[in-house]
Write a protein that binds this DNA or RNA. Structure first.
Lengths: 129, 129
DNA sequence: CCGTATCCCTTCGGATACTG
DNA sequence: CAGTATCCGAAGGGATACGG
């Protein structure tokens, strides 16, 4: 109260500042190679753990678990345990996850579209190195 | 000529297989926290090294350099050296980089849109932990 | 089948100092 | 100002073993 810092007047820079901080954190969780690949594959259909592991390919048991937990924590992936024996666990994208998948699809499209340009750029880069 | 491998006939599964391998590699280079943030900021305008470093925030000199080299190698970023003294180096997005920026913009939008849902999901997750 | 924990090696990334 | 090199601690990630 003492030092009034015209909080209400200004455009929501403070909000953006803290939102930005959180957004960065989310970015860190989500904008990684494995997370985005998982999103992409799970977007196609619900899968079980090892099924997903095979689809993604090249990911270890441990790392897949870690990534799935992070995605679950952020509400992008839902985990359903069927109490059968042996147990069966299904992973599926939430609405938020599906929305993100749209973005990732765009990234996949981008990769295909610019593939040849990228290959050319790499050759050029090696040449100058 | 000897072994004709009906290249034109089949749906490009073989192509996709090798394209996929390369696409994964590109994904690894590009789909990281820092690379995407750099793309996003450079998309706004051309910047000099330290300028970009301040904008991105929280990135070390070394890591920024490494990321810029990778982006340059893949033809997403162009590096222009002005032979002044002291030297001045400008970084700008190429067409491919700008195209990718569109995707990253989508990701930023996604973050804003689902921010509250994500926060809620986190609280729920902590609660169950 | 799914998940966690441990071990251990590799890579990442920050700090610093030096060159052009 | 921009970039490279070095050092060194921290985090990442694979392999394996075991519990639910």
């Amino acid at each position: 109260m003492g030092t009034r810092q015209e909080i209400s007047a200004l455009p929501p820079e403070a909000d953006l500042a803290q939102a930005d901080s959180l957004a960065r954190e989310i970015f860190s969780d989500v904008a990684t190679k494995w997370s985005l690949l998982i999103i992409e594959f799970l977007g196609q259909r619900t899968m079980r753990f090892n099924e997903l592991r095979r689809e993604v390919g090249g990911i270890s048991h441990k790392v897949l678990t870690q990534n799935l937990r992070t995605l679950e924590r952020n509400g992008l992936v839902e985990r359903t345990v069927h109490p059968t024996v042996p147990p069966s666990v299904e992973y599926t994208l939430t609405d938020a996850g599906q929305a993100l998948r749209k973005v990732v699809d765009g990234m996949c499209d981008w990769t295909q579209t610019y593939l040849s340009q990228i290959k050319a750029a790499r050759r050029r880069f090696e040449g100058n190195a």
